[in-house]
Design a protein around this nucleic acid. Structure first.
Length: 894
RNA sequence: AGGCGCGUGGCUCAGUGGUAGAGCGCUUCCUUGACACGGAAGAGGUCGGUGGUUCAAUUCCACCCGCGCCUACCA
């Protein structure tokens, strides 16, 4: 048979590109709605196309997702998993506005149409960068179904119109988060309010109008410039200090406007002076008070954050300029009582980082509470389950507290709101199709569409079914909805919550049955990965340096529930070494295939101990890996396979196979076992490290076109062989025991030594004889004797390897004092272990109340330790005798 | 302030009501034909603190301390 050659190490870049193209061109990623196989579908949380592309957090969630996808596919499922990419309307628009600014232009200068085509171009480039990273990571996504614009806009209209008809979407004036740099409203989730800055709390005196000059009320404010928009001063109705002023007017400083003093229970009596200025256009709470009491609203700022005509002398200034002006004026007029330093929390736009201020404007809102109720019920009834479970509570909590969601954005780029106004009769029309005429007055002209677009998350929330062609009744939708699972990062939990609300409302079922939430990716400084900070790690750099398999294996191994992975350099190197180890184990197998190879059915006959042992172990590994995958314990999957490959297959089986391959009697079967075990191992590893496993699998004798369509291994109970595992355990202990003594006495690694085993009985003797060959080879023993207890020679190194007693005569000198120190330490350790057990066994309560098998186990352990103790003490006595004669002992050369 | 989570060897993390584990790092020795991205052997932890439940607590409970994430408030 002609076999491929294999290098000493592999080149991840080349094989990755090669195999990804092969998989994609072979159509292995496609879902097939006509398939007879059971369906399995996954919702992809779309990476935001925000120009910063794709960070480690995405790589983390998507890697775990691809592990599931590949595993399910190998288990025979027809898997539906599409690449996702959301519009990120603000980011896209901001990026293009910056480009324009460099050309000295504003979006208004080039017009909506031209602007949109520029954003579209930008989004394609930026999106392309993300999509190429998804490929580089090896994600097996169905690219043939990736079509993110055409159907989405129909889905969005359908959802919006039906929600509006049900009264769950409405248009109203409201105080919303306003980003004056982006020039748009933002939802609560678009705002980052974690930052504080040093500011001041100013105390300002408002004089009572028509009153005594001494009558006044003092209010506190952190934003003095907005007093220009005050329309009242509010106090608590039960506050005795101010009761007399309620109903009277005060004079607004600077503008000299008369405003009333009102009572409202929303005021906190204990804060500041207990009197609060009411600025309905710039504070959500004040807005509610004003609405309640019928107070006017005065907006003093335009959409760019510049003070407007309502600001009197400060018109045209920005906020800080106006603030300085107002403060100076108040000081001049003696109305500034005091100013104390204070940390003020500031809100920033998550996209452009500009400071966000509340501002009154006409917007579209989604009634979150009403949508949340059925979603909360669905979670409580476990129609959606969370992994880890605790996220359910977080999601419910989020839904309970969510305020109405502002979904309109004053942008040029994004899904236009399907609402029109008839200029003739002012009727508001919300419709699926562009209206040709006004349904009210019949006008055909001057029906203007709302200029606003929808929040990115509005359409993203629909993606679990919009991507399947909803609202059309497509075969995909019928087959793959609801999705089986959604795999998300923790910061997407509010997005997931909205998705569940929208799914239940729009299509009447949850978007997915399970939500898996992974840990939060951190950088090497253990800080949260952040796009906004701009120094996030680009997974592409890691891939180029270490290979996608290494990155994937690292992320998988770090995916312990609740743990926050940080794929630092050292960690990646450790896992890269594993990939290399696997490569070289495969190389060993490939280089040893010349010669007869037993047919699979021949393994049913007699087999060597190591072969029985590794096959038995493999079954257990398969079972544990399956179980871990089912429980989303990706960390355990990685650790299990790491340990099996390195610590069992390589360290023991491959080592022992060397002598088995050298003997005619065992060689053919050993080749078969090596191939079978490696083949199964590669298939087990394929979901985690797809590229290298494909490369190796293709080089090995194999059936089928690709490892990714090969069946995932199933445990074969008939191969489980506990006696073989026990026997192998004893053998490993014997070899390790000799090695430990060699190392302790710094025996030259090349030098062969002699070992005598003290056989207690026939069983011990036969055991050693049976395994003479691996002991000679793996422990570098030149001569192995088995003697009865009465033939032991004094003054040799004595060692207990498990239950076997070894005597190792050392060539040359050995230090009695050192040997005694070692044994004394061992005696001490053993004594303390015996003491602990003795105490328990002497306690009548323990014997009476502990489970009987525990008591038995304690007795057995106590017995074994006592025997060990006796041996150790015996040796110490012998050594003491030896020292009495000459202080050290010279032993004959072996 | 509230919700959730986390505190186990130098680092990152598993785990368990009854002998404390892994990977990386560290120490010593070794280029022996799969692999120096390697091999062999080691060192290293009173499992955050205090109480409680129990024959027995790193594990269960309570409180405390420290850290993280999220939400809210901040005139």
């Amino acid at each position: 048979m002609e076999r491929e050659t294999i290098d000493k190490s592999h080149s991840p870049q080349e094989i990755s590109r090669h195999w990804y193209r092969f998989w994609e061109e072979s159509g292995f990623f496609h879902a097939d709605a006509a398939s007879q196989r059971p369906p399995f579908s996954i919702v992809v949380p779309p990476p935001t196309n925000a120009g910063e592309s794709f960070h480690v957090g995405h790589a983390f969630a998507l890697t775990l997702q691809d592990v599931v996808v590949r595993w399910k596919r190998m288990c025979g499922f027809d898997v539906h998993c599409l690449p996702g990419l959301d519009h990120a309307v603000i980011s896209a628009q901001t990026a293009v506005e910056r480009q324009l600014a460099r050309e000295g232009l504003r979006k208004e200068d080039i017009g909506r149409k031209a602007f949109q085509s520029r954003v579209s171009k930008w989004a394609n480039e930026s999106g392309g960068a993300i999509l190429s990273r998804l490929r580089a990571m090896g994600y097996s996504l169905d690219w043939t179904r990736f079509d993110h614009d055409a159907t989405i806009s129909r889905s969005v209209r359908e959802a919006f119109v039906s929600l509006h008809a049900a009264g769950l979407v409405y248009r109203d004036n409201g105080v919303v988060n306003w980003c004056s740099q982006c020039g748009t409203a933002l939802s609560d989730l678009d705002v980052d309010s974690s930052e504080t800055e040093s500011g001041r709390l100013w105390f300002v005196r408002y004089l009572v109008a028509d009153g005594d000059k001494r009558e006044s009320i003092v209010v506190a404010t952190t934003h003095p410039e907005t007093i220009l928009g005050d329309t009242a001063v509010a106090v608590h109705p039960a506050d005795a200090r101010h009761r007399g002023l309620v109903g009277r007017d005060v004079t607004l400083p600077v503008l000299e406007r008369r405003i009333p003093v009102v009572a409202d229970s929303a005021v906190d009596k204990d804060f500041g002076t207990g009197a609060v200025r009411v600025t309905p256009a710039h504070d959500p709470k004040d807005f509610l008070i004003a609405r309640h009491l019928g107070l006017p609203c005065v907006n003093v700022m335009d959409e760019r954050g510049i003070l407007n005509e309502n600001a009197g002398p400060y018109r045209g200034m920005d906020r800080l300029e106006a603030r300085r002006g107002v403060v100076a004026r108040l000081e001049q007029e003696g109305l500034l009582v005091s100013a104390i330093p204070r940390q003020i929390s500031i809100s920033r736009c998550r996209r452009c980082r500009a400071i966000v201020e509340p501002r009154l404007s006409l917007q579209w809102f989604v009634k979150t509470r009403a949508l949340a109720e059925p979603a909360i019920v669905a979670m409580e009834e476990e129609r959606v389950t969370f992994i880890p479970e605790s996220w359910r509570k977080t999601s419910i909590e989020w839904m309970r507290n969510a305020r109405d969601w502002c979904v309109s954005r004053q942008l040029y780029w994004g899904q236009r709101i399907p609402a029109w106004t008839c200029m003739a009769c002012k009727t508001l029309i919300v419709a699926r199709e562009d209206p040709a005429r006004c349904p009210d007055c019949g006008a055909v002209n001057d029906i203007l569409q709302d200029p606003d677009v929808l929040d990115t998350w509005f359409s993203s929330a629909l993606s679990p079914y919009s991507s399947m062609g909803w609202p059309d009744k497509t075969a995909d939708f019928a087959r793959y909805y609801p999705n089986d699972v959604l795999m998300a990062t923790p910061d997407a939990i509010s997005w997931v919550s909205r998705m569940i609300m929208m799914g239940l409302r729009c299509v009447g079922d949850v978007p997915c049955r399970k939500v898996f939430v992974n840990g939060l990716a951190r950088d090497e400084r253990r800080e949260k990965e952040s796009n906004a900070r701009g120094d996030a790690i680009d997974p592409l750099d890691l891939i180029e340096k270490h290979g996608a398999d290494t990155l994937r294996f690292t992320l998988t191994a770090l995916a312990a529930p609740g743990a926050d992975p940080s794929p630092g350099e050292a960690r990646l190197l450790g896992h890269r070494a594993f990939v290399n180890k696997l490569w070289n184990a495969s190389r060993f197998v490939l280089l040893n295939l010349d010669g007869e190879i037993a047919r699979p059915e021949e393994l049913a006959g007699e087999l060597s101990l190591p072969s029985r042992w590794i096959l038995s172990l493999l079954q257990k590994v398969i079972a544990r890996v399956q179980q871990s995958l089912q429980g989303y314990r990706f960390d355990l999957v990685a650790h299990e396979l790491y340990h099996f490959v390195w610590r069992e297959l390589c360290d023991w089986y491959i080592e022992m196979s060397k002598s088995l391959l050298a003997e005619g009697a065992t060689a053919a079967k050993t080749r078969r076992v090596l191939i079978d075990v490696l083949d199964a191992t590669l298939r087990l590893l394929h979901p985690v490290i797809p590229f290298v496993t494909e490369e190796l699998w293709q080089k090995l004798p194999h059936d089928g076109a690709s490892i990714m369509t090969a069946p995932f291994p199933l445990a074969d109970a008939s191969r489980v062989d506990d006696p073989a595992e026990t026997e192998m355990g004893r053998l490993k202990q014997l070899i390790a025991g000799v090695r430990a003594i060699r190392s302790l006495y710094e025996v030259e690694p090349r030098k062969k030594i002699g070992v005598t085993v003290i056989a207690r009985n026939r069983d011990d003797r036969e055991f050693v004889e049976r395994h003479r060959s691996p002991v000679l080879c793996l422990a570098r023993v030149g001569r192995l004797d088995v003697v009865s207890a009465n033939t032991e020679r004094p003054h040799t190194i004595r060692h207990l390897a498990g239950d076997l007693e070894l005597r190792i005569p050392m060539a040359g000198l050995f230090d009695i004092a050192a040997e005694m120190t070692r044994l004394s330490k061992e005696r001490l350790m053993t004594a303390s272990a015996i003491e602990t057990l003795r105490k328990r066994l002497d306690n009548p309560q323990f014997v009476a109340r502990a489970r009987p098998e525990i008591v038995v186990e304690h007795r057995e352990r106590w017995g074994a330790l006592t025997t060990r103790m006796e041996k150790t003490e015996e040796t110490l006595r012998e050594l003491t005798g030896g020292r009495q004669s000459d202080g050290s002992v010279s032993l004959p050369e072996e």
